[in-house]
């Protein structure tokens, strides 16, 4: 069972493996630069626990849990 982006603790990195979505939802995530092989870092969580901000290819982008859970990743540690 592969972890998804929303399980990555703040401060940790992960490698994108696959996007578990289709159609426009997938395209939007791809557009943000979440293509397989991309290194992503979870940089911060909103005070209420959701959404989470990720550093994706140099830009900090906030994703809600629902979106982040579509992104399959492998953990890289700190």
């Amino acid at each position: 069972m592969c972890p998804t982006l929303n399980n990555i603790p703040v401060g940790c990195n992960a490698l994108v493996k696959k996007i578990n979505a289709s159609g426009i939802k997938k395209r939007r995530l791809l557009d943000l630069g979440l293509v397989p092989g991309t290194k992503v870092e979870a940089v911060g969580r909103s005070p209420l626990g959701d959404p989470t901000a990720y550093n994706i290819r140099g830009a900090v982008i906030a994703l809600r849990n629902e979106e982040a859970s579509m992104v399959q990743v492998s953990k890289l540690g700190n």
């Binding site: 939007r28 901000a53 830009a59 982008i61």
Partner: peptide
């Protein structure tokens, strides 16, 4: 809710 992405510039 639809999908939500927001850049923190």
């Amino acid at each position: 809710p639809s999908s939500f992405t927001l850049e923190l510039p």
